[in-house]
């Protein structure tokens, strides 16, 4: 009760603080951009120029420079379409990661020898930077989406599996005993006790995996990543469209924060007992 009171006070204050820091940031940024400390000018775009690039990237716009041609967004896709393509890739990779990672984790956590046997490999995969095997995956699955989805799957499932194992091994012995005494079969023990008890850990693992997959997809799009928000961020930089590149960076960062907020909201809805029991 006191914590909700604190939150009620903190909420508006926090938003005010965030707003103030944003205003200061934009002011400093504008001053630095206007001062033209770095030559040529395009290396330090002002907030307005970045906004302008963002709007142009989301609309039909003239190419400019005296040319009469009108193009669609950037590289024929609107910026939001680039973002959606990247999100679709991590959605697929994560989906596969959950479909494979959770049952594997349940199995490894429940059956000791399977856990002992497969554990080192999952650990090894988790400690690899995913970009280490992108070349290998391109050779196997081509330079199109398949290799990227494979990459994200391989990045996403180890944290999910490891968190699931952790959850299964953390189930209180007496919670299992209680269900056995009420007549639970082995399968019922899994579905009625072990899986729900492990849900908070599975969601923690998913949260880690989402962050990991997002950094990975942006980097993976350096190679044939168009459409894709990471690909666009990279290409625009190499073409000296710095304002557009900064706009992409902001979109990538804000998307990461939004993804995390989505998972945390899911956690609140699905496992309201977390930290309470």
């Amino acid at each position: 009760m006191s914590s909700s009171h604190l939150e009620a006070v903190r909420g508006p204050r926090r938003w005010l603080g965030l707003l103030a820091s944003l205003v200061v940031l934009l002011a400093v940024w504008s001053v630095v951009a206007a001062a033209d400390l770095v030559e040529p000018h395009y290396l330090t775009p002002s907030p307005l120029e970045v906004w302008d690039a963002f709007v142009r990237a989301n609309s039909h716009h003239a190419v400019g420079g005296g040319v009469d041609r009108v193009v669609r967004g950037e590289e024929n896709y609107y910026l939001w379409e680039h973002l959606v393509v990247s999100l679709r890739r991590i959605g697929l990779g994560l989906g596969l990661g959950v479909v494979v990672g959770v049952p594997l984790g349940l199995l490894m956590g429940t059956v000791r020898w399977v856990g002992d046997l497969a554990g080192p490999y999952v650990d090894f995969l988790r400690s690899l930077p995913p970009l280490a095997y992108i070349g290998f995956l391109v050779a196997w699955f081509g330079i199109y989406d398949a290799s990227k989805v494979w990459l994200l799957f391989l990045a996403a499932f180890p944290p999910i599996t490891l968190a699931t194992i952790n959850g299964v091994r953390g189930v209180r012995q007496d919670q299992l005993n209680a269900a056995r005494s009420l007549g639970a079969s082995g399968l019922q023990l899994q579905t009625q006790v072990i899986i729900p008890a492990t849900l908070p850990d599975i969601l923690s693992g998913l949260r880690v995996a989402v962050g990991f997959a997002w950094t990975t997809v942006v980097a993976a799009e350096l190679v044939n990543g168009l459409p894709g928000i990471g690909g666009l961020a990279y290409l625009s930089g190499t073409q000296n469209k710095i304002a557009l590149s900064v706009a992409c960076i902001l979109v990538i960062g804000l998307t990461a924060i939004a993804l995390d907020a989505v998972i945390r909201t899911i956690e609140k809805l699905v496992v309201p007992w977390r930290g309470k029991a």
């Binding site: 209180r172 007496d174 919670q175 005993n177 005494s181 009420l182 007549g183 006790v193 729900p196 029991a277």
Partner: peptide
């Protein structure tokens, strides 16, 4: 082994929070 003929009330309640 455990069985439905013997109910157990534990020292720490084992109610399921879900």
């Amino acid at each position: 082994g455990p069985g439905v003929d013997r109910g157990v009330v534990f020292q720490q309640p084992t109610l399921y929070p879900w």
